[in-house]
Amino acid sequence: MIKLALITCLSLAPLGAQELKIPASLDRLAAKATEVVDVTMDANLLQLAGRFLSDKNPDDAQVKKLIEGLKGIYVRSFEFAKQGEYQDSDVEPVRAQLHTPAWSRIVGVRSQKSNENSEVYVKTGNGKIGGLAILVTEPKQLTIVSIEGSIDPDQLGQLGGHFGIPKIDTRKETGHGKDE
């Protein structure tokens, strides 16, 4: 019985390791930032928020449907007054976690003009998206988003224009082929 439990634990360990952990070291950037967004919502908190979303309100209902399969949402966004307040080494621990077989980079683009680097990763398993990670680095801004659980990116896009969320312009979708 102990052997079986041990085998189960060992076999489940890699699954746990696939989750993107936002390193605590990033928190020190908050002191230098002029604006900080720090959201940590685990499954329990998402469930609680879901209870306060009305089925009668179409916007709420849309969000409720979106979060149904989610296990967590983690956001860290730092806006700085001047450039150079964070280093690549601050972001490296996040990238290292995303450069594992569980994650696939679906978008990776660097703009020379604005010196912006955007990366979108998805975690796939059994033909489903099991997680989404967004990493956007700009000279004066750093944003990391990690969404755990079953998520439909189209549903996310549909939230634009509702709920105080900016609308995503989907007129041209041709840019998605621009991966590394």
Binding site: M41, E116, V145, P153, L156, G157, F163
Partner: peptide
């Protein structure tokens, strides 16, 4: 919790929009 969720989704969709514009 609802406000936190709204904020998280707002940042996520904003960043996705940025990615799309950059692409």
């Amino acid at each position: 919790a609802k406000e936190q969720l709204e904020l998280a989704l707002r940042v996520t969709v904003t960043e996705l929009g940025k990615v799309q514009r950059t692409v």
